[in-house]
Design a protein around this nucleic acid. Structure first.
Lengths: 365, 365
DNA sequence: TTGAAAGCGCTAACAA
DNA sequence: TTGTTAGCGCTTTCAA
């Protein structure tokens, strides 16, 4: 690999002039620029970005910490963010935590050592004191994506309005007459969306004089397995409410598998709504009502905030983006219809009978 | 950020001793190590990996070039690879090409400038001369993931046996009596899987005295939209074969949407098989027959090949991994049953009638 | 407008 | 076992 020295020598100029010619420095004669360009061409010179970064004190690199890149929503954010930042010459250093909070912390330190110019964070557990310590000690811009760290004023945040999203979705279910809703959520208290969604859910219930019964709020790390397990338990106990509300999308496959395995017809024997909209929700038959949000917009906003901060142009900022209710057939039936169907003659079922009975509390509650 | 000098000063040693103490150098006295460790603790020193990389001539960084990180299969590979390499202290620089071959080339050059120690490549178009030129000029290990570049002996490759996978899947459909199969593939000639799968498909047909009719091999960049369009065209022309074989998974949502929109019942009015297994295929009702492969294994093998090459321990190597036929209900019906269903009384349909008629050539062909 | 010189922070070779 | 020295390749003063 040719170095700047060789190029300089070949062009008969000083190394500094090569830098100037290539970096669009204002005061460079056309003649010198030509000679440098020719020498660059001949040698195939490509500046060493490691060396440039060391000297410049900035690596033109942005770190992304993500709790799980296989989650299509997070993959989409990474994708768009990489694109936004790439336009300005920044590369992305990816760190996936695989749901392990300890990795979040390790990643912050590693990326710091790699001298990233900024950090985008979709961590596993925003409450981790260690993580907070690591993040607040950073001396470069940080943007939190759907994460909230009180007191971390130096960071920007791009949040969706998960409170409103969950609130509206819950109201939608209540409007259909559902008196009991099973809410399957990710770990409470670990991240902003889970927290806000719970608040939206309980508030909507309370506004109608209902309460979120603890046994109907099931919380765990978002895995397919747990989604399946919860449904199995509810069915086994004969206590599946007329409506189910799902938070994080990794639960969804498990939930659907268990419903299908038991012959529970989504949309008929149970209403099902999701707070994450993923391809699976749209393509399921019947399609699933979901709360949709534009990861592209989140990434675009995050990207421009980071770029602005890196160039020192702006102050940290919190941006809240709306989510959109996407009504689909999985919640079209009224609670009454759902409960009637369940009690109705098994013979009418197209598939094998569902192991469903009316929930203990029932609609009469 | 504290530097090595400050640590050295505080510990009363030379900078080089700090390096030695921290890097586990054999000849370091316990006493010196203790003092250094204490000073590190006090200053919160974290080595600058940019500087270390420059000096060492290796950045402990691996580039990944991926054609589309939103594709769940590719996201899985990135995920596992990042994990494998992370164990050994390597970070991942991500470059997503978004289906644009020109970006592949730009990414190779950028990553080269960033002095990555190795490169994992899932490019858009392996035939691109520019890309080949860029890749072959590299002086560090490269591993191709499901990509093949003839003459690029210095690279390793981790391939799945897509030929066998497509061959077996086609045989499976032929065994069910399908005489005509619509094959929807990604751009032919751009990548190894598309090429090998086509070969497997046509060979299987030829072995039974059939031929792959050009109008039944539909090729385009893998997008949901094209998948939908092909199905719409076939249905409009009344020429949908009794079986459909789908290559790249991005087609799948479009195909399913069009089938659903037209009331074509997958598994009854048409047999459907996929050469990519994604969550959607498993969770569809009925579940879709698919060819499954372990992205985790591909990533593990790729990771260990890269690590081995980087430490100079081994030669480039090509590893071929098997794919597994996962038979599910979407191909359970025989061709005869499918065609009979289509001609049968509309009244028996549960949903609205399908706009399907027997294909022009028909089973009698 | 250009060149010379210094140095970013680290590590490896060599010397002690 | 430890310190000294040099230098990775670049960019940024500063001086000419």
């Amino acid at each position: 690999m040719a170095t700047i020295k060789e190029v300089a020598q070949r062009a008969g100029v000083a190394p500094a002039s090569v830098t100037r010619a290539l970096s669009g420095h204002p005061n460079v004669s056309d003649e010198l620029r030509q000679r440098v360009l020719a020498a660059v061409e001949e040698t195939g010179y490509k500046p060493d970005l490691l060396a440039a970064g060391l000297r410049r004190g900035s690596s033109r690199t942005v770190g992304i910490i993500v709790s799980d890149i296989i989650n299509p929503l997070l993959a989409a954010v990474v994708d768009f963010l990489e694109m936004e930042l790439g336009k300005e010459g920044y590369s992305v250093l990816l760190a996936n935590s695989h749901g392990d909070p300890a990795r979040d912390v390790a990643s912050v330190q590693l990326l710091q050592q790699r001298r990233v110019d900024a950090l985008a964070v979709m961590c596993v557990d925003e409450r981790s004191a260690e993580l907070q310590r690591a993040l607040t000690s950073l001396s470069f811009p940080v943007v939190l994506l759907d994460r909230e760290i009180p007191g971390f004023e130096r960071a920007s945040a791009v949040l969706f309005d998960h409170y409103r999203s969950a609130h509206r979705m819950t109201e939608h279910l209540l409007d259909a007459g559902h008196q009991e809703i099973l809410y399957i959520t990710g770990l409470l208290g670990t991240t902003y969306p889970n927290r806000e969604r719970l608040r939206g859910f309980t508030t909507a219930l309370e506004e109608r004089g209902l309460e979120a019964r603890p046994e109907l709020v099931r919380s765990a790390r978002a895995t397919e397995q747990y989604g399946r397990q919860v449904i199995a338990e509810m069915l086994d106990g004969g206590s599946l409410p007329s409506a189910v509300l799902v938070g994080p999308n990794p639960f969804l496959p498990g939930i659907l598998k268990e419903f299908h395995a038991r012959g529970v017809r989504v949309g008929e024997d149970v209403a099902l709504a999701c707070l994450d909209d993923v391809p699976l929700a749209q393509l399921h038959q019947p399609p699933l009502t979901a709360s949709g949000r534009s990861m592209e917009e989140q990434a675009r906003v995050a990207g421009s905030l980071l770029l602005a901060h890196m160039s020192g142009r702006r102050m940290p900022r919190t941006v809240v983006l709306p989510a959109e209710l996407r009504l689909r057939p999985s919640t079209a039936a009224t609670a009454e219809a759902v409960l009637r169907t369940r009690r109705g003659p098994r013979a009418q079922r197209r598939r094998r009978p569902a192991a469903v009975s009316a929930p203990s509390g029932g609609a009469s509650r």
